[in-house]
Design a protein around this nucleic acid. Structure first.
Lengths: 254, 254
DNA sequence: TCAGAAAAGAGAGCGCCGCTCTTGCTTTGG
DNA sequence: CCAAAGCAAGAGCGGCGCTCTCTTTTCTGA
C-alpha cells in the first residue's frame, strides 16, 4: 500500500509529495495564478519536463492542491469542533464558523482556490467531493444533535419550495425536517459569503472590527437554521457571564 | 469634453472603446485568466505593442472591465428595482436580489472577476469604489424607505458589536438604527455567498431548483435585516404578521 | 505658416510560461 | 539476464506580458 514494493515506488511517493509541498508553498506565497510548473521544478532542482511524470498538467497539480486545501480546512474545522464537543449547539456552530474564517484568513490563496472563482475554464473533478463536504457535514451534525434534543425549529416552508426541500433532505440528512435542511444549505452558502467578502476586500471601508462582526453574523446564521439557544442554564447570567455577549433576540418557532 | 478637439482625440476614444469591447467579449467567452492583450490586439488588427498606448498593462485593462461589470450589474439591479418601485419593501428587496443573481448567471466570468477571488496579486484600485457600491446603495435605500414607514425592526445588538455598528452606521446610513445597518451589511455579503455558491458549482449535487431556493433565501435575508412584511392591507396584524409561509421568529425591537 | 512637440503604429526582442518529443540511463520483473 | 517500463534531461514550439526603438501622423503655438 503506502510502503510500496521498490525503492522506485517509494521515491515516486516522495517526489510527488515534494512537488506538492513546493507548489503549496508557492501557492500560499503568490496565488494560484502565478503558480508555475517551471518554478516548482526549478526550486526542486529538476527540469520542468520531468515534473510531467508526476502531474500530467498544471490543472492536475492544482486539483491535488484543491483537495489538500479542502482537507486542511476540514481538519481545522473538525478539530476546532472537537474542542467544544461538549458545549451546546450554539457554541459548536460558532466554533466551526470561526475556525473556517480563521483558516481562510491564514490561507487566503488556498481559500480563493476552492471558494473563489474556479480557475480558468476549469471544473472541479468529482475526486474533490468528499474533501469538500467535510465542513458541511460538520454543520449538519451539529444541527442534527440539536434537533434530537428538540433544539431546532423553523417555520413551515412556502409551498413552492417543499418539493425541492424534500429532495435536498433525502440527499443530505433524511433525519432532519426539510425546513431545517433548506435553511442549513442557505446558511452554509451565506457563511462563505461572509468569509469571502472579508477576504476579498469587499469589507474594506465598510467593516473594521471584522472578528466581532463575523461572530455576530455567525450567531445570526445559527438562528437562521433554527437553532434555539436557551438561556445558558444559569438563570442569573444577565451581565457578562454570558458565553460571549453575542446573544440576540429569541428565536422560536412552531 | 467628450467630443474633444481633434480627430486624434476622437479616434483615441473609439479605439479605447473597441479594445474594451473586444476584451469584454473574450472575457465573457473564456474568462479573465485567458484574457490576453495579444489576442485582443490580434482580433483588432493591431500589433500588441500598440495596445499599450491605451492600457499600460493587462491589469489596467482588467480594472476597466471590472468597473464596467460593476456598472452593468448596478444598472441591471437598478432597472429591476425601478420596475417594482411602488411595491412594498419585500418585493423590492427580492427584485434586486433576483436581478443580481440573474446578472451573475448571465455574466459568470464578469461576476467572477468582481466577486470571485481577485485576480493574481491584484488589489482593486479606489476607482472601482463608486461602481461597486451601486447594489449596496439600492439595498440600503429599500431598507431606509421601510424604516421611515416603521417597517424595520431588529433586536438589540450585543454590547461588543455596538461600537462597530455605530461606526458602520455613521459611514453608510446615519439615518438608520445600528442594528439594522449591521444586519444589512451581513445580508449583503450573504447574498453574494448564495449567488457565488450556485455560480461556482458548490450547489452542484445539492440544490436543483435553484431559482426557487434562491427566492426563498433572499426572502429570509430580508427578514434578517429586519424588514417586516405586514399582511397586505390588514391593519391589525399583531400576531400572525406574516405575508406567506415565510416568516421566521418574530423580529422586534426598538 | 511651419517647425518642433506629442501621439500613435510597427517591429524586434527579452524572459517567462505550458507542454511535447526525443534521447539516453536506471530499476524492475519475468 | 535481458526486455520492458520508469525516469531525468535537453531542445524546442507557440504563446504570453512587456519594453525599446524607429517611423509616421497629427497637433500646437510662435
Amino acid at each position: 500500500m503506502s510502503t510500496a514494493r521498490g525503492a522506485r515506488a517509494r521515491a515516486r511517493i516522495e517526489v510527488t509529495a515534494a512537488i506538492k509541498d513546493e507548489a503549496r508553498r508557492r501557492l500560499a506565497a503568490e496565488g494560484a495564478a502565478k503558480l508555475s510548473l517551471r518554478a516548482v521544478a526549478r526550486e526542486l532542482g529538476m527540469v520542468s519536463s520531468a515534473l510531467y511524470r508526476y502531474f500530467p498538467s498544471r490543472d492536475d497539480l492544482l486539483t491535488a492542491l484543491i483537495i489538500d486545501a479542502y482537507d486542511s480546512l476540514g481538519e481545522t474545522a473538525e478539530s476546532a469542533h472537537a474542542e467544544v464537543a461538549d458545549a451546546g449547539p450554539r457554541e459548536r456552530w460558532i466554533a466551526v464558523c470561526v475556525a473556517a474564517r480563521r483558516w481562510a484568513l491564514e490561507h487566503p490563496h488556498e481559500y480563493a482556490l476552492i471558494y473563489g472563482s474556479p480557475v480558468p475554464g476549469y471544473t472541479a473533478p468529482e475526486t474533490t467531493i468528499p474533501a469538500a463536504s467535510r465542513v458541511g457535514l460538520l454543520l449538519i451534525g451539529i444541527v442534527r444533535d440539536a434537533h434530537q434534543g428538540q433544539g431546532v425549529a423553523r417555520p413551515p416552508l412556502p409551498t413552492d419550495l417543499k418539493v425541492e426541500a424534500q429532495r435536498m433532505t433525502a440527499e443530505l440528512a433524511p433525519d432532519l425536517p426539510p425546513e431545517v435542511v433548506a435553511a442549513l444549505v442557505a446558511a452554509w452558502a451565506q457563511l462563505y459569503g461572509l468569509i469571502g467578502f472579508e477576504l476579498f476586500g469587499q469589507f474594506n471601508r465598510v467593516v473594521e472590527d471584522r472578528e466581532t462582526f463575523f461572530r455576530h453574523a455567525a450567531d445570526q446564521l445559527a438562528h437562521g437554521v433554527g437553532l434555539i439557544f436557551p438561556r445558558p442554564t444559569r438563570p442569573n447570567a444577565a451581565h457578562g457571564a454570558n458565553g460571549r455577549g453575542t446573544d440576540s433576540g429569541r428565536a422560536n418557532g412552531a
